[in-house]
């Protein structure tokens, strides 16, 4: 046992230097003013709860919610089919494959597909349908996010469904359930841990999204992640940026706690990759 703990040491060290210390720095920046002056202040908090920022925060949460719901709606059936398919593992590769490429590259690819002079619109124009406004709006952002985060929904559900005991399904059938009832009474309730971890894994990155939103909306549609980035990189106000990050962190912890409560209601975990 003692020896095993020793193996964890490099990671603990890593975490202290790159997670815990930066975290303290963020808290420090959020509650102090200008370098050198360590008197605590709530100034940045009052700046951060400006209605403008709160509006963007609510929007981010709403978009993340929408994105998670869409991912679940699209992802569950896919995961179900994959789990039942004979070569599920091979097919699931197709969903992992795009993740081998950086998400920014894939987002840029979406831009050239959707833009006015892009692939889809050229096709529409050639077919006489006329140009459509596909890029530079909210829908493009949601599309980009669902596309990027869908694998994080499919994979945990797939892993869970795949591990389900077939004899349970057979038992349900023997006892007179039709296919639909087997699904709603047995498969679905048993897959809840997978669904919960899928939701967590999509909601977290969705609510903190930046860059995707800026690129696909042409900078017209900002999410909370974008304003944090802006505070650090262009406004140069690290204090407000840190405070906004803390608010984001609080929301994530809150929703994780909420999901955790959901998750623990259903028995035996699993599904989490």
């Amino acid at each position: 046992m003692r020896k095993l703990k020793l193996f964890a040491l490099p990671y603990i060290l890593w975490m202290v230097v790159f997670t815990v210390l930066p975290m303290f720095l963020i808290v420090y920046y959020a509650f102090t003013n200008a370098p050198g002056n360590s008197a605590p202040t709530l100034e940045h908090f009052f700046k951060a709860i400006d209605p403008m920022y709160m509006k963007i925060l609510l929007r981010s949460i709403w978009i993340a919610f929408l994105c998670t719901a869409l991912c679940l709606l699209l992802g569950y059936p896919v995961a179900f089919l994959l789990a039942r398919a004979r070569n599920g593992a091979v097919w699931s590769l197709f969903f992992i494959l795009p993740m081998w490429m950086n998400f920014l590259l894939r987002t840029y690819a979406w831009m050239s597909i959707l833009e006015n002079t892009g692939i889809l619109n050229s096709l529409f124009v050639a077919m006489g349908l006329g140009q459509m406004e596909l890029l530079y709006n909210e829908n493009a952002v949601i599309l980009g996010m669902v596309y990027n985060f869908l694998p994080f929904m499919i994979l945990p559900i797939y892993t869970n469904l795949q591990k389900q005991d077939v004899s349970l399904l057979e038992a349900a059938q023997d006892l007179g359930c039709n296919g639909w009832r087997v699904f709603t009474r047995v498969t679905l309730p048993l897959s809840m841990p997978g669904v919960v971890s899928g939701i967590t894994m999509v909601f977290m990155p969705a609510v903190t999204t930046f860059a995707i939103s800026r690129l696909l909306s042409g900078g017209k549609f900002m999410l909370f992640g974008d304003i944090i980035e802006q505070q650090y990189l262009s406004t140069g106000n690290w204090n407000v940026g840190s405070m906004l990050s803390l608010i984001m962190l609080a929301i994530i912890l809150l929703s994780m706690g909420l999901m955790g409560r959901f998750g623990s209601d259903t028995k035996d975990g699993g599904g989490m990759l």
């Binding site: 833009e115 006015n116 002079t117 530079y136 909306s217 042409g218 900078g219 017209k220």
Partner: peptide, 22 residues
């Protein structure tokens, strides 16, 4: 002006204008 704006962009404006985006 915002409803008239297609996008707020940085260096990629050049490529987009060359392509005839706006």
């Amino acid at each position: 002006q915002r409803p008239l704006v297609l996008g707020y962009a940085l260096d990629d404006i050049q490529d987009k204008m060359v392509a005839g985006e706006a």
